[in-house]
Each structure stands twice: as structure tokens, then as C-alpha cells.
């Protein structure tokens, strides 16, 4: 009886895994096929003749290097600035005493329910009047501080004992030194978690880059891919190669640091 149950369970689990993974497998395999080969009946799962031509095409003819670099610079930029600012703000909310602290914090939290789209147009006009549309800053500046990030760091920093900070102050450390030498090192795990979230979120974001990057030389990978889709809708194999390159960086980051990522989901859900 137990064995039958086990077999059924395994069948379901494996089947679900196959369904989850099949689209990726097909994407990878089609990206190595010759043009037109993926449009066959019955569908082919593996290329008959392995070719790298689509990848070569993407890098030489279609400026993929530019888009990859754009995405990379923007994602790293947002991650860097947001870790810096969120950690300062989170630390301040956790350990400093100032007038209206509780009110400001609950105001921030309640504004989290407002969807990003509501502020999109005003922010766009603001950036436009500053002349920042079509620059990396158009994505980096709005991404620099996030309420979720401040919240995550505050929760973590509250667990740091006050005695540590006081001891450092008695030893003559200023506010900056306490932040740099005590808070930041202690917050390392949460900074890593937040960093992965921010990096992936920025890399995968589509609507905002689509709005603020109107010049094709500033496209990020998702925007470039969507644009490519419009022009090369028939070139299935080429599109698949583009998809592989769009997905690959985030998947690698995830696989390398999945422990921190999954911890972040749990923290956000338990305390959110």
C-alpha cells in the first residue's frame, strides 16, 4: 500500500517537474536548430544538427552586446544604490529616535499597497523635465530606495543589540563609523538577500524600461527581446536564442544564491 502511494506521488511530482522544465528545454534546444527546423510536425525536441548561428547573429548583427551591457549596468547600479540607501534608512528606522518615526514608517508601509503604475506617469514627467529620459539614471533613480527594502533591513537591524553600538560610541566611533564598521558587516546576510531581489527584479522588469528607454541603443534585454519579437516573429530559433541569453544571467544568480533568495521570500511573507 505504501509503495503504491509512493509510486503515485513520484509520478505526479516528476510529471509536474517535466511540465515546468519542458518549455526551457525546448527553448534551449530550439536555439541551436537551423532556421525553420523548430516549425515541424510533430515538434522536434532536439536539433538534428547543432548550430551556433543564431547566437552569432545576435551578437554581430543585432547589437546584443549593447543590450546585455545596458541591463547589467542598470541592474548592478540599482542594486548598489538601493543597498546603500535602504540600509541607511532601515538602520535609522531601527535604531535612531526621531520625531514622527512611527508615523513616517507606517505611512511608508501603507503606501506599499499603491500599485507602481499610479506613480509611473508623474515620475516619468519628473524625469523628463530633468532631462534624464533615455539615460541609465531614469531606471536607477526610481529604483534607488524601496519600501520593501527599508522594511527588510529595519526588521533585521532591530535584532542587533544596542550594547554593541553603545560600546563603539564609547570607544569614540562616530555615526558614520558605527554604520560602516558595525551595522553593514552584521547586516551582510540580509543585504545579500535584498541584493539578489533587487538585481533580479531590475533585470526582469519590463514596463518601466519600456517607457523610459525610447532610444533603441538604451534598451534593456527584455525590451530588446520584445522589440526583436516584433521584427523577427518568424525566426523562432533566433528568438529562442535571444530568450536563452535574457534568462541565463538571472537563472545563474538564482542557482548560485538560492538559499538567500528563498529566505527572503519567507521573511517577506512571515512579517509582511
Amino acid at each position: 500500500m505504501k509503495n503504491v502511494k509512493k509510486i503515485i506521488l513520484y509520478t505526479v511530482v516528476v510529471l509536474l517537474a517535466v511540465i515546468t522544465f519542458l518549455p526551457f528545454l525546448w527553448m534551449i534546444s530550439a536555439s541551436f536548430m537551423h532556421p525553420g527546423e523548430s516549425s515541424a510536425y510533430p515538434p522536434r525536441l532536439f536539433p538534428s544538427d547543432f548550430t551556433l548561428m543564431h547566437y552569432k547573429d545576435l551578437f554581430t548583427r543585432l547589437n546584443l552586446t549593447t543590450y546585455l551591457l545596458n541591463s547589467l549596468v542598470i541592474s548592478l547600479g540599482v542594486t548598489f544604490f538601493s543597498l546603500f540607501l535602504n540600509s541607511m534608512a532601515g538602520y535609522a528606522f531601527a535604531k535612531y529616535r526621531f520625531a514622527g518615526k512611527k508615523k513616517i514608517f507606517s505611512l511608508l508601509l501603507s503606501s506599499m499597497i499603491i500599485p507602481g503604475q499610479v506613480t509611473m506617469l508623474p515620475v516619468f514627467l519628473l524625469l523628463k523635465s530633468l532631462g534624464l529620459i533615455n539615460t541609465y539614471w531614469a531606471i536607477i533613480i526610481p529604483g534607488m530606495a524601496s519600501i520593501f527594502g527599508i522594511f527588510l533591513i529595519r526588521q533585521f537591524a532591530m535584532g542587533i543589540p544596542d550594547s554593541l553600538i553603545e560600546a563603539a560610541k564609547i570607544d569614540g566611533a562616530g555615526d558614520t563609523e558605527v554604520y560602516l564598521r558595525i551595522i553593514l558587516p552584521l547586516c551582510r546576510p540580509i543585504l545579500l538577500t535584498l541584493g539578489i531581489f533587487t538585481f533580479m527584479g531590475t533585470w526582469n522588469d519590463f514596463l518601466w524600461p519600456l517607457i523610459v528607454m525610447t532610444d533603441s541603443s538604451k534598451y534593456t534585454m527584455p525590451v530588446a527581446l520584445a522589440n526583436l519579437m516584433g521584427e523577427h516573429v518568424q525566426d523562432t530559433e533566433l528568438m529562442m536564442a535571444g530568450s536563452v541569453l535574457t534568462i541565463l544571467p538571472v537563472v545563474l544568480v538564482f542557482l548560485a544564491l538560492q538559499k538567500y533568495y528563498i529566505k527572503g521570500i519567507m521573511m517577506g511573507s512571515v512579517k509582511g
Binding site: 522544465f21 518549455p23 527584455p222 520584445a226 530568450s243 537563472v251
Partner: peptide, 13 residues
């Protein structure tokens, strides 16, 4: 895995 991948690429696939 599908959660972390780019929505646009997924839509293309």
C-alpha cells in the same frame, strides 16, 4: 525556476 526567469522571455517561448 519559472519564477525567477524574465517574463518577456517566457512569453516569447
Amino acid at each position: 525556476l519559472p519564477v525567477v526567469t524574465t517574463l518577456v522571455a517566457v512569453a516569447v517561448i
